[in-house]
Amino acid sequence: MKSTREIINLRVLSVEEGKEIGFVHELLLNPQNGSIDFLLVKDGEWYYGLKALPFSAVQGIGEYALTVASSGDLKGLAETPDAVALLESNPRLIGLRVLSRKGRLLGRVKEYYVDENSGKVRGCLLVPEGRDEAAGIIEDKYICTFGRELLVVEDDADKNLMTEFPDGEMPASQLQEKEAAAPGAEAAGSAPETEEEVEEGSAEAEDSLKLFRERQRQYLIGKKLGITITSDDGEVIAEEGAVITGELIDRVTEAGKYILLTMNVRE
Rank of each mutant, 00 (worst) to 15 (best):
E267W: 09
Q59H: 04
G119Y: 13
L39H: 11
R108T: 13
L175K: 15
L225P: 07
K75D: 12
Y142V: 03
D158K: 10
E149W: 01
K110V: 00
C124E: 14
S56W: 13
E6C: 03
V41L: 03
D140H: 10
Y142E: 15
E111Y: 14
L96V: 09
K19G: 00
D37Y: 00
P128F: 12
G60L: 03
G34D: 13
L209I: 11
L53Q: 09
T67E: 09
Y64S: 12
S190N: 10
K19Q: 01
V153C: 04
A85H: 13
E139Q: 05
T194C: 04
S35R: 14
P183S: 00
N90E: 15
Y142M: 01
M170T: 04
A69Y: 07
V236G: 06
G136T: 08
V265R: 05
L10Y: 03
K19A: 02
Y47W: 10
E6K: 07
Q216D: 15
F146T: 03
Y64T: 11
L87Y: 06
T262Y: 04
C124I: 09
R97K: 12
A78G: 11
E17P: 05
R122Q: 09
D82C: 01
G256D: 13
D140T: 11
E45I: 01
G189A: 00
G201R: 15
A57E: 10
E129K: 14
E199K: 14
E239R: 07
E133L: 15
V252M: 08
I137E: 10
N160A: 05
I21G: 02
S56V: 14
E200S: 10
L175P: 01
I227W: 10
L96E: 08
L10P: 04
E254H: 11
G226S: 08
I61W: 10
G49F: 05
A255F: 02
S56L: 13
A182I: 10
S173F: 06
I21S: 02
S3F: 05
A181I: 04
A242H: 03
P81T: 06
I259A: 06
F23H: 12
A134S: 12
R92E: 13
P166G: 11
M162V: 00
V153A: 06
E129P: 03
L175E: 12
R251C: 01
G136W: 09
V236A: 09
A180Q: 15
A57Y: 07
E195L: 10
N264K: 07
K178C: 05
K102A: 00
K2T: 02
T253S: 14
